[in-house]
Design a protein around this nucleic acid. Sequence first.
DNA 1: GTCCGGACAA
DNA 2: TTGTCAGGAC
Length: 220
Amino acid sequence: MAILGKPDKERLLAWYQENGRHELPWRKLQTPWAIFVAESLLRRTKASTVAGIYPSLIDEFRCPEDVLGQKNLWQQQTNPLGIASRANQFFSACEQLIQQHQGKVPGNYKNLITLPGVGHYIANAVISFGYHRPVYIIDTNTIRVASRVTGEQITQAEHRSKKAKRLLEHCFGDQDGLSPDLNFALLDLAFSICKTSKPDCNACPLSSRCEYGVAAANTA
DNA sequence: GTCCGGACAA
DNA sequence: TTGTCAGGAC
């Protein structure tokens, strides 16, 4: 199984500095609330679509109280994203934030995971991007990259298992000391190069160390 | 394992 | 028209 070294991680981070989607609006904020709002909207929804409505949304709704005070406006503005039911879910989460966390988004996994609409992905995203603590975020993107690099298959159901985290740690090291930028780098790499279909291995900073990339080069 | 959902690209 | 999208609940 391929193992990436420090030079590979540095090459990936360098690629990210040069080619990452730094313009995504929630990347400029990176507060727990801003990240919580963004991730709630981003599930099963394209980043570019969310980016279209996010700036005005985060400007108008600066805390859970703002959301609950203007539910109709929230629904109206988020409706184009689809999955309208998640608006009600988000309202419930806001109520819980006010009742149990003084209106603040908590920073530990145990409290986050109890919020309606928050699963392992959003919990870790808030911890990583909102609180800047070293945890891997596990989603279709980071798993796709790790799966291709190692050549290990992994199913959607296994994303919640320890196997997913093991794959990431195997590729990019133990998560202690992990830079949040590595998570961003993996998401952006998965978006623009390590795509679901027709990945652009020629432009990938990891291709020489990636089982999928090496195989692609041999069959080209 | 299945469902949710509109927007967008191919 | 199909496949896909920073998942989560049941």
